[in-house]
Simulated assay, not measured.
Amino acid sequence: MKSEGSLERRYRRLPKCYPASYRADHEEEMISVLIDGAASGQEHPKPAESADLVRHGLGERLARLGDQIPGPWERKHAKAMFPIRLGIALWLCVLSGLLIGYHLQWWLVLIVPAIVAHIYLAYQLRPGVWRPKA
Rank of each mutant, 00 (worst) to 15 (best):
K2D: 11
S3R: 15
E4D: 14
S6L: 15
S6M: 14
L7C: 02
E8Y: 05
E8F: 09
E8S: 08
R9C: 05
R12M: 09
L14P: 00
K16D: 09
K16N: 12
Y22R: 13
A24W: 04
A24N: 04
E27I: 13
E28N: 13
E28Q: 10
E29D: 05
E29N: 08
V33D: 14
V33T: 15
L34S: 06
I35E: 11
A38W: 01
A38V: 02
A39H: 10
A39T: 12
G41Q: 06
G41S: 09
G41Y: 13
Q42Y: 05
E43M: 12
H44Y: 08
H44R: 14
P47G: 08
E49L: 13
A51G: 11
D52Q: 10
V54M: 09
R55H: 08
H56P: 04
G57M: 12
G57T: 12
G59M: 08
E60D: 12
R64S: 04
G66T: 13
G66M: 14
G66D: 13
P72M: 04
P72Y: 02
R75K: 07
K76G: 00
K79V: 11
A80N: 11
P83R: 03
R85Q: 08
L86K: 13
G87H: 04
G87R: 05
A89C: 04
L90E: 08
L92N: 10
L92S: 05
L92D: 02
L92Y: 07
L92H: 06
V94G: 03
V94A: 08
L95H: 08
G97N: 07
L98C: 12
I100H: 07
G101E: 01
G101P: 00
L104S: 06
W106C: 07
W106K: 15
W107F: 06
W107A: 11
L108F: 03
L108P: 00
L108E: 01
L110E: 05
I111D: 03
I111S: 02
V112N: 01
V112D: 00
P113C: 04
P113R: 06
P113N: 07
A114I: 03
A114E: 00
V116M: 10
V116W: 11
V116E: 00
H118F: 05
I119P: 04
I119S: 07
I119W: 09
I119E: 06
Y123G: 13
Q124H: 05
L125P: 01
R126A: 05
R126C: 06
R126T: 07
P127K: 12
G128W: 01
V129A: 06
V129C: 03
W130P: 01
R131D: 02
R131Y: 02
A134C: 12
